[in-house]
Design a protein around this nucleic acid. Structure first.
Length: 407
DNA sequence: TCTGGGGTCCTAGGACCC
DNA sequence: TCTGGGGTCCTAGGACCC
């Protein structure tokens, strides 16, 4: 007997111009003006003796930063995320430039996520300003396709933060992500599978999460510009052009099919630190500067690991040269570590395997193959197996804090 | 006046083991 | 001696996302 499964109802919630909106809570006098977040560090607003504030503008900026977020007024001038700040300054010299304040954004991130979880606990984190929410099990949600819950979520986020968000609610993550974009800012968009031809197929392929610059360029070269174009293409052709995995995914995606679950918990795979220099540095001429930066990154990375409670067994480096080409090298150690000196030594060995004749613009250090500290330490004596029971071999060749240098 | 920093996932080849 | 296949780990690069 045919018995259709109850369709899922998944929400994607995306905060509107998140960093910029948080800054506007702090500086309400900037409301209505083009404002961008990003650039370097030294453009903090100054409070004048009369209590008014003086803000830096893009015109005054010099450096190699990029725009992280822009208000809708700045977007109207052509200034978007990931654009070089110098290029943005050309387009909107009078836009206000504010430095990034991650601590503040994280604070608001926690607030809005807590407000959502109080209503709908099945939440998947997708970074600081967006989440997926599985609404399927909420009482009464299927009666109106999730509209009432969606409105409730928007209201709760606004009350908790003073900020607006946009929500898409559909049977899966793929469609919800597309829909949260359709009515930004402050939108609520519901969509059923039967709406796909009218609402989804006209969208540019590039809008899809998973189709980036390279794939969309290749699709365009094949005459496939919209999601509908992909839906109309021969599946065998897509597989032949893009391979079984990605081609097969394109076929499913274009029909709006996506059965990925909402994942409410995950462990980090890697932790890293990197920095782009103010000017390109040469391995020989700027050896001392480079060495200090390198060590500093390792110390910061070790601090991150310790603070978060992880140890790493694979240490890697990333270099970007003046021609913007990048290389990586990594090294797997005999034992996990969270020690700055051990990380520095492993990273130094990686660095020896790279040709350093070009000047460098970026240096990074990465810790992979992570293990939670709690899973590594020796069992507590009280938890030791009873006498006569064979003791399991230690999982890792500790000592954890071995510095190699001191042997 | 090009292009940040922090991530995930996929592919692919070689080593090594059974 | 030759042939072969599967599985896992390690490394490097690249696409993509927020």
């Amino acid at each position: 007997m045919y018995s259709p499964e109850a369709p899922r109802l998944i929400a994607h919630l995306d905060m509107d111009a998140f960093y910029a909106s948080v800054e506007l809570l702090r500086y309400p006098e900037l409301r209505g003006r083009p404002v961008v977040i990003g650039g370097g560090r030294r453009h903090q607003p100054q409070t004048l003796p009369d209590g008014t504030r003086r803000f830096a503008t893009l015109r005054e900026y010099t450096g190699r930063g990029v725009i992280t977020t822009s208000t809708y007024e700045a977007r109207a001038l052509g200034v978007f995320s990931a654009m070089g700040t110098m290029k943005a300054a050309r387009l909107a010299p009078d836009a206000v430039l504010l430095p990034v304040d991650f601590d503040e954004y994280r604070k608001y991130s926690r607030l809005f996520k807590a407000a959502v979880r109080a209503i709908a606990p099945q939440v998947e984190d997708r970074g600081i300003d967006e989440i997926y929410i599985d609404l399927s099990e909420l009482p009464g949600v299927h009666a109106d396709g999730g509209r009432r819950i969606g409105e409730q979520l928007k209201q709760a986020v606004r009350e908790a933060t003073g900020l607006s968000c946009s929500i898409g609610i559909t049977p899966n993550k793929l469609l919800s992500k597309l829909c949260s974009e359709l009515d930004k800012p402050d939108g609520l968009t519901l969509l059923r599978m039967e709406d796909i031809p009218v609402r989804i197929w006209p969208l540019a392929a590039r809008k899809v999460n998973g189709i980036g610059p390279k794939a969309s360029e290749k699709l365009a070269a094949l005459g496939l510009h919209t999601i509908g174009d992909i839906a109309a293409a021969e599946p065998a052709f897509l597989v032949q052009q893009f391979g079984a995995h990605y081609g097969g995914w394109l076929v499913q995606m274009a029909q709006g099919r996506d059965d990925r679950p909402v994942v409410t918990h995950s462990e980090p795979v890697s932790i890293s630190r990197e920095t782009t220099f103010e000017r390109d540095l040469h391995a020989v001429r700027d050896r001392a500067t480079l060495s200090d930066i390198f060590t500093g990154l390792c110390v910061e990375l070790a601090g991150d690991l310790q603070r978060k409670g992880y140890a790493s067994r694979t240490i890697g480096i990333k270099l970007r040269f003046d021609d913007f080409k990048s290389v990586t090298r990594d090294l797997t150690l005999p034992a996990h570590t969270m020690d700055a000196r051990a990380i520095r030594r492993a990273a130094g060995l990686c660095l020896k395997r790279v040709d350093l004749s070009r000047r460098l613009r970026l240096l990074g250090v990465r810790a992979g193959a992570l293990a939670r500290l709690a899973d590594l330490v020796a069992p507590h004596p009280a938890a030791e197996p009873a006498a006569g029971v064979a003791e399991p071999a230690p999982r890792y060749g500790l000592p954890l804090f071995d510095t190699l240098e001191s042997r």
